[in-house]
Nucleic acid binder design. Structure first.
Length: 113
DNA sequence: CGCTTGACAGGTC
DNA sequence: AGACCTGCCAAGC
């Protein structure tokens, strides 16, 4: 129905986070790296996610290292995120960080380490 | 058209 | 270990 369709980077981000399975998280940079089709940067992902609609599991998106930068803007949002993630079975570290080693979801085109 | 801002990332001090 | 700087790139004014 629209001529643009996939030209909307925001929709690509929402679509990506929707593909994240329950109990798994992704980082802003990871999204930007996988969505190279829309040439996004980690910053844009965050900005877009800030407008995130209710149908996008934004709580599965965390910063690098499993931190939640939203905590400075909205501590309530960070708490909600942690709540939702814990409810999904995501492992948390003692300092309020996600256990990336276990919860970070890796898509196919992940480079060799 | 250009400066400012921004849910980031990584490095340095 | 916390504070500060740069790079990235797009959207807003």
């Amino acid at each position: 129905m629209s001529s643009d369709g996939a030209a909307d980077p925001a929709e690509a981000v929402y679509a990506f986070v929707r593909t994240v399975p329950r109990g798994r998280v992704v980082t802003y940079g990871q999204i930007a790296d996988c969505l190279d089709s829309v040439r996004l940067t980690a910053r844009q992902v965050g900005t877009i996610l800030s407008m995130c609609p209710a149908d996008a599991p934004w709580h599965r998106v965390v910063g690098a290292g499993g931190s939640t930068p939203i905590s400075k803007r909205s501590p309530a949002a960070a708490l909600l995120q942690r709540r939702l993630l814990e409810a999904e079975g995501v492992a948390f570290l003692g300092n309020g960080r996600v256990d990336m080693a276990r919860a970070q979801w890796v898509d196919a085109p992940w480079r060799d380490e």
